[in-house]
């Protein structure tokens, strides 16, 4: 067991972990941040996406010890300071971009990373970027639409509702 320290959603966090403990498990089991979900064991589904030092990372593909000293942000830290939904979260609700909610934290975190690098992505760019985030409920239509809306683009031409 080894000591690991990092900053998570702006607060200092630490714990004793095994060498094999994944960041996803550390967040969920040690810190109780269960919004980061684990949907696969081959790094395809993206339900566990968090940001580490500002970059989108699949928390199932990184050891907790690798995040030593890092700034980590998770879905629990995304809402506005007053607790209201941020622009991306609000767009997902407004456009029904989620159903069961299991992939949603990863989708929101990936979207934030996408829009940071590409503030007005095209439909094709969004679909390509989401290659590492699988959703089984929505058929992606409303996720893509929500991301376009979150980036200030007109979604009026996309089929209603």
């Amino acid at each position: 067991m080894a000591q690991v320290k990092m900053t998570v959603n702006g607060k200092a966090a630490s714990g004793e972990v095994e060498g094999r403990t994944l960041l996803a498990h550390f967040l969920r089991d040690d810190l109780g941040l269960t919004g980061t979900h684990i949907g696969c064991d081959t790094s395809q589904c993206g339900a566990c996406v968090v940001h580490v030092n500002g970059e989108a990372v699949k928390a199932c593909s990184m050891l907790a010890l690798e995040a030593e000293g890092a700034e980590v942000s998770t879905i629990e830290g995304q809402a506005n300071a007053d607790g209201s939904l941020n622009v991306i979260q609000q767009a997902f609700q407004d456009h029904h971009g989620l159903q069961c909610g299991f992939c949603t934290p990863g989708m929101v975190m990936s979207t934030a990373a996408l829009l940071k690098d590409n503030p007005k992505p095209s439909e094709a760019e969004i679909r390509h970027y989401l290659d590492g985030n699988i959703c089984r409920c929505t058929g992606y239509h409303n996720i893509v639409k929500a991301i376009m809306a979150a980036s200030g683009q007109d979604t009026g031409q996309i089929a209603a509702e």
Partner: peptide
């Protein structure tokens, strides 16, 4: 109507069995 479920799912506050 917008879904009331969404707020908890969008903020990581869902309560799934593994949680």
């Amino acid at each position: 109507s917008k879904r009331r479920e969404d707020v908890r799912f969008l903020t990581g506050a869902g309560n799934y069995t593994d949680d």
